[in-house]
């Protein structure tokens, strides 16, 4: 059986996309390679700030994120204007974030 990661066209893993867990960004030390091997399209990349989630807790009672200090206050009430305009558009390749959740479909977990 071909390993999922060996399938170049339609890995079964992509059929149930799973996103990178909660605002984690890989600490990738590897530097760009040389001009003959670096994909042309990457020339036009810009360095962007790493997104960080604010302090929060998940309330199983409300099934919503709540403030870290007050479990009865949903995050969407604490800072309603923050939403969608600063840090939370994380699953589209549009909007204030350019990440696309479906793009990250690991066949291996990212745990150490």
């Amino acid at each position: 059986m071909t390993a999922f990661t060996d399938d170049p066209l339609a890995p079964p893993s992509s059929q149930f996309p799973l996103a990178r867990p909660g605002w984690t960004a890989p600490e990738e030390p590897e530097r760009p390679s040389g001009p003959s091997t670096r994909p042309f399209g990457l020339r036009f990349m810009r360095t962007a700030p790493t997104m960080r989630a604010p302090g929060f807790r998940y309330s199983h009672a409300l099934q919503m994120s709540v403030t870290a200090d007050r479990p009865d206050i949903p995050m969407i009430d604490r800072a309603p204007m923050m939403e969608w305009s600063t840090i939370t558009n994380n699953d589209g390749d549009e909007g204030p974030s350019e990440d696309f959740g479906n793009d990250y479909c690991p066949d291996q977990t990212i745990q150490p």
């Binding site: 590897e30 036009f44 990349m45 962007a48 350019e98």
Partner: peptide, 9 residues
């Protein structure tokens, strides 16, 4: 993500 940074296009 490379070179300790996040890059977008």
């Amino acid at each position: 993500h490379e070179d300790h940074s996040r890059k977008v296009s």
